[in-house]
Simulated scan of single mutants.
Amino acid sequence: MANAQALKSGKTGKTGKSRFIRDLMMNKYLYLMMIPVVAYYIVFHYAPMYGALIAFKEYTPMKGILGSDWVGLKHFNDFFNSYYFVRILKNTLIISLYSLLFEFPAPIILALLINEVRSKAFKRVAQTITYMPYFISLVVICGIITDFTNADGVINRLFMLFGYDGQAMLQKPELFRPIYILSEIWQRIGWESIIYIAALMSIDLEQYEAARMDGASRLKQIFHITLPGIMPTIAIMLILRMGNLLNVGFEKIILLYNPVTYETADVISSFVYRKGLLEFGWSYSSAVGLFNSVINLVLLITANYVSRKVNKSSLW
C-alpha cells in the first residue's frame, strides 16, 4: 500500500510538473511580462522586510543591522507608554474612518451618476474633468489647498461672507481633517471611479430591458440591478481599503500640517517620517511602522473573512 501511495504521489507530482511546463510553453509571453512585476515586489516589498529587525535592535549605521545590539521589545514599550501613542493612533483612526465613510463611496456614486447619463459627449467631458486632479503633482495640489485656505485665499474669503473669522484654515486644528478628506475626494474620485465604471459595463443590458418592461423606475433599477451587479467589485475594493486603513499617506500630511495642527493632523506615517528621518530614531520609527503593518494585516484578514461569509466575495 505504501508503494502504491508513493507511486501515486510521484505520478501526481510528475503530472503537475508537466502541466506547468506545458502551460509555461503555451503562455511564455505572459510569463515574460510577469517577470518585471514579480521582480518589483521581491526587490521593493519582500527584500526590505529583512530590515524589520531594526525594530528589535538599537540600530547604528556603523554596526549594521546584524551587528547592532539586540533590545527586544524596548522600542515598542517606549512607544506604547509615550504621550504620542494615543494621539497619533486616534488621529490615524479618525482620518481613516472619515476616509472610509466619505471618500470610499464617492467614486461609486460618481460611477452610478455617469452610468445614468445618456449623452456620450457629456460622459467623456465629465470623466476627463474628474480624472485631471489625480494627475496633478501632490506638491502642486497642496500648494493650491494652502493658497486657497490662507487668510486672503478664495475659499477663506468666501467663508468670511458667512461669518468666518478669516484666520488661515490650516492653522486651525479642528479644520485640518475636513480639509484633508475633501481634498482627497476631489483629487481621487475620478480616478477611483474607473474600476466601478468598468464593472458597470459588464452588467447584462437585458436585465434593464426586462426591468423596464415590468415598470421598474430608474431608481429601482439602480438598487436591484446596478448595485448588486457591482457588489463583488465593491467588496474587493473595501477589503483592500480595510487592509490599508491605517496607512494614511504621510506625503500630503507633512505638506499640509504644522506644529499648531499636530494635535489633530499627526498620524502614524508622519510620526514615523519625523522620528526616523528628521530625528534619526531609526529603531524607534521602525517599531512604530511594524506595529502599523501588523494592525493592517489583521484588519485585512478580518475584512476578507467577513466578506467571504457575508457575500461570498473575497481575495482568497
Results as ranks from 00 to 15, higher is better:
V272G: 07
V140A: 09
M62C: 02
N244W: 09
I136Y: 10
P36A: 05
Y41Q: 04
S137Y: 09
L138W: 11
R124G: 14
N91H: 08
K8E: 11
A151L: 06
Y84D: 00
D266G: 00
E263F: 13
M169C: 08
I239W: 01
I94Q: 06
M1W: 00
N27E: 13
N150A: 15
D23C: 05
Y305D: 09
K120M: 15
R87F: 00
L256Y: 02
R218P: 09
T130F: 11
K11I: 04
P107C: 07
L53N: 04
N247L: 11
F148R: 11
H45G: 02
F20E: 12
H45A: 10
N311Q: 10
R124V: 15
K74Q: 15
D204W: 03
S293P: 00
L7W: 07
I225L: 02
N150F: 05
E58D: 14
G249Y: 08
M160L: 08
I42D: 00
R177Y: 11
G276T: 08
K63C: 01
R118W: 00
F104M: 08
W191E: 07
M26R: 14
N156S: 13
P61K: 10
V117G: 12
V288W: 00
I109A: 03
V37Y: 01
L93V: 15
R87K: 15
S9E: 08
L66Y: 07
K74T: 15
F104C: 03
T15V: 09
L175V: 08
G215E: 12
V139Y: 12
G72L: 12
I185G: 02
L161Y: 11
Y29G: 03
F291R: 02
L255P: 09
R157L: 09
P48D: 12
K63S: 08
L182P: 00
I108G: 00
A126W: 02
C142H: 02
S183Q: 08
K312M: 07
W70L: 09
L93N: 00
L256I: 09
M169E: 07
D78S: 05
F79Y: 09
L170R: 02
E174S: 14
M169R: 03
V117A: 14
L300N: 04
G72V: 15
F80W: 03
V117F: 06
G51V: 02
V298W: 06
L7F: 08
N3T: 14
I94F: 07
L219Q: 09
I109K: 00
L73E: 04
P107L: 04
T264A: 07
G229I: 06
M132D: 05
N247D: 13
V86G: 06
I234Y: 13
Q207W: 03
K120Y: 09
R212S: 12
S286K: 11
A106G: 01
G67M: 09
S293Q: 03
L297S: 14
V288L: 04
I254N: 07
L53M: 12
Q5N: 14
L97S: 05
M169S: 06
I239F: 01
Y40W: 12
T226H: 01
N244S: 13
Y273T: 13
